[in-house]
Design a protein around this nucleic acid. Structure first.
Lengths: 204, 204
DNA sequence: TGTACATCAGTGAACGCGCGTTCACTGATGTAC
DNA sequence: TGTACATCAGTGAACGCGCGTTCACTGATGTAC
């Protein structure tokens, strides 16, 4: 009689060594996702990237689905944390916050990751839900910053402006990261003014 | 001695029947791409969708690459034609053109197709080139419409505003098609005013 | 109007390959006595 | 401080499957005489 093996088997390692392994595996998987897309996310590929055996991947993630879920969870969690950190750092002035967000969008890999997520969300309910949650938080954070900058703006109005602001920002990423077009300093400045006008701040 | 077979072998059929088959194959392939993403674009899947044998697909497209190229060519060609038709129809008034573009963005399948293209462009030079060409045409068409509406705007200024307009439109698609958020009538109206202000038209 | 033949359109079996998954097995590490 | 044993971490072979590709083959359709 062969008993089922023990093992963590859920992406949450018990020891520090195991936690590092989990991180390394998810790092490699994220790299594959960004580089070659969701269709290329093969366990053997990730194992080769980390430099371990295929079976070792499956010690931490029993199925491919479990790995992909853990990967997406971590991606969304980090995106939320990054957003909160940026707002905490630049929240008082909308101009500096915008500058930080615009600069972040020049990171091609970060942009590519979101293009994959947008495509994935179209056919995976869990990704769609996570993404909607993230963007709701995003819009709310911008709306809050906007209201603390100008308390005269109503809450509904602030949310609408914030939604347009975030939509504009995401659309701009296509035209600045080289995916669909490449921006220059002149365009970046025009884009900056445009987004500030969107949230009702004419000048910083 | 077995001679190489003849056949069209390039996606361009000789007869009307062949042309219909090519269309049917590309229709099915597009459906698979939109529904399940680029990673699911398997020849057997497409063949089953059309209801023909795998070998018949390969009679028209010798390799998977050839099929994908033909599919992307047709997608980009149709996008260009659709854009030109829309500009020709509503070009004189920017408001009606914007309304047409906004309504078009409610077609989830069309949006999903572009999310796939954005993701693909990140790792396929040919897709990136085609997409850049399409958006350059897009921006130019909006810029032209803008200048014919208000000849006082300089060409450079018109192109910058047009680029922001198209970026805003693409960003909005995420927030209206349900991918990242779902819009309502109030938001749609705010978005419409926002984009008209972007190209310098305060009111239609 | 026939007939011979080339080309067109399409089929189905086979190939080698990479995939996710299963599983028996092995050191390393911790823990109880 | 040893020793026995359970758990942790990791390996490698094997499985069945779907994949892109190759290829011999077959009707259908057109075309030349």
């Amino acid at each position: 009689v062969t008993l089922r093996r023990a093992g963590p088997r859920k992406g949450t390692a018990v020891s520090a060594k195991g936690a590092n392994r989990v991180d390394a595996i998810l790092d490699a998987a994220t790299r594959v996702l960004v580089t070659d897309g969701a269709g290329a996310l093969a366990l053997r590929r990730v194992a080769a990237d980390v430099g371990i055996a295929l079976g070792n991947i499956q010690y931490y993630f029993p199925t491919q689905e479990a790995l992909i879920r853990a990967l997406l969870d971590r991606v969304m969690l980090r995106a939320s944390e990054g957003l909160r950190a940026r707002v905490a750092e630049h929240g008082e002035g909308l101009g500096p916050l915008l500058d930080a967000l615009l600069e972040e969008h020049l990171d091609r890999d970060a942009c590519r990751l979101f293009y994959e997520l947008w495509a994935l969300a179209a056919r995976d309910k869990a990704v769609a839900r996570a993404l909607r949650g993230f963007y709701a938080e995003y819009v709310e954070a911008v709306g809050d910053a906007l209201r603390s900058h100008d308390p005269a703006v109503s809450e509904v109005d602030a949310l609408t402006r914030a939604r347009l602001f975030v939509a504009g920002l995401e659309g701009l990423s296509l035209f600045r990261s080289g995916t669909v077009a490449r921006g220059d300093a002149t365009f970046d400045e025009a884009a900056r003014r445009w987004l500030l006008a969107t949230i009702g701040v004419e000048r910083t």
